[in-house]
Amino acid sequence: MPAADLLSSQGLRLDGRRANELRRIRCKLGVFTQPDGSAYLEQGNTKVLAAVYGPHQASKSKSSSDGVVVNCQYSMATFSTGERKNRPRGDRKSQEISLHLRQALTAAIKTELYPRSQIDIYVEVLQADGGTFCAGVNAATLALIDAGIPLRAYVCACSASMAWGARPQPLVDVPHVEEAAGGVVLTVASLPNTGSTALLEMSHKLHMDYFKMVFSSAVQGCRDIEVILDRAVRDHLAEGWTEQDTVTV
């Protein structure tokens, strides 16, 4: 069991947040001109870039007539962590995260609309301070919206942990220090609008009695993130909107 001091006696965490508070999220859509859609997202000190290409013609081997093929690639920059390390693409960890990204995003994309097409999503972590997968999902959602790809709803991801003080309490949006303390980390990707869960992953063992508590706090985190993303999208629309968009043909 990890150290009990993840939460101080005043109810503050190591970085000064309360247990149910998210880190500051700042984001921007349309940061590149070359891809069809792109987004930059900061979640505390975690900084992520996402780029979306497509839908375009799928390569013959991948092409499927039932729906669009979603292709994800997650990579971390050499300088993203404290220790400088050259990470070849396709190492086991990033391959796994790519798969998870794909699962979370396909749950939201209306894949049946574009048979024989393919969507490529590239997520690059510029600075990693815990919750890189969550930040990657959130950035990819924004990039997909920027590319004008039809989605069922926003897909948001959030992590949650547990503080074992006098009274066990769930902690939302886990940074690197809390991850490194060795506690349980539950990652949830969900579509808050429809209330469905797209992906669930847990790093350690957790007693059943506490699971519900941690899960609901992570889902609440997703809901909060959705509000922030929605505001960012509306700001982007207000900025990029032109009068000809409203003209009815």
Binding site: I145, G148, P150, R152
Partner: peptide, 24 residues
């Protein structure tokens, strides 16, 4: 009836479309 893209609504009689800012 729900929107699947982010954009402005275009209405022709009873047909509703949402037009994204950019797409293919």
């Amino acid at each position: 009836l729900k929107a699947s893209v982010a954009g402005v609504m275009q209405k022709v009689n009873k047909l509703i479309c949402i037009r994204p800012l950019k797409n293919r």
